[in-house]
Amino acid sequence: MQDQVEFKGIREGILITIDPEAEWGDVLSDLTARIDNQAAFFRGATIVLQLGKRAVQRPELARLLNRLRERDVNLASVLSTSATTQGATRQLGLALDLSEIGPAEGVRQATPQIERPPEYPEKMFDDEIVGSEGILIRRTLRGGRVIRTPGHVVVVGDVNPGAEIIAGGDIVVWGRLRGVVHAGAMGDESCVICALDLQPTQLRISSLISVSPPTNKRRKPRPERAYIQDGQIKAEDWNH
């Protein structure tokens, strides 16, 4: 039941894989419930549906499309091996193939995500070494850029005022962080935000929001780490 809907970040946006065996009604309510739970993360996001071999008629797909539109979620493409589903997708003017849509805004300059190597010898490495998914951005994010991904984000460069990062996981900035960042945007309260100079316009972890205290702007920059403790966002020196 839990895994009938799966989320994953891809170049084009967020890939949602739906178990082809699961009951469509369940899928629909599960999907909308999960989007509503993480409304801040999904608002304005571009998604791609992977339906596999499931046959979906046009009215069913249109109903889903409407529900997504009501939540300001942009469905760009439906991937399917079923002729019925493909037909419905075409009639609704959606793309059948990822090559028909461009990479999501903001992700364009990021290194494309590398799929996890499928044949790692089991038990040879810790999970730590295999790691979890994230994107590396090797440039300064300037005002107006928005990065949105369910994984982690590492920026080698600054995050300038007016730039925004919304990540399901952690955010690490090897540079000055002055924009708006949201870690754990899908509800994970264990997420952290680290920067060599932590001066964000606004900092959010999970559902908590904090604003940088007005400090002396000439202070010496030092690496800091922000995390949730006792229901509050705390920032501390990063010296361990």
Binding site: R108, Q109, R139, L141, R142, G143, G144, R145, N160, P161, G162
Partner: peptide, 13 residues
């Protein structure tokens, strides 16, 4: 300065 930053970002990409 904010608008300049935005423009530089557009030109860089």
């Amino acid at each position: 300065v904010r608008d300049a930053d935005r423009i530089i970002g557009l030109i860089e990409t």
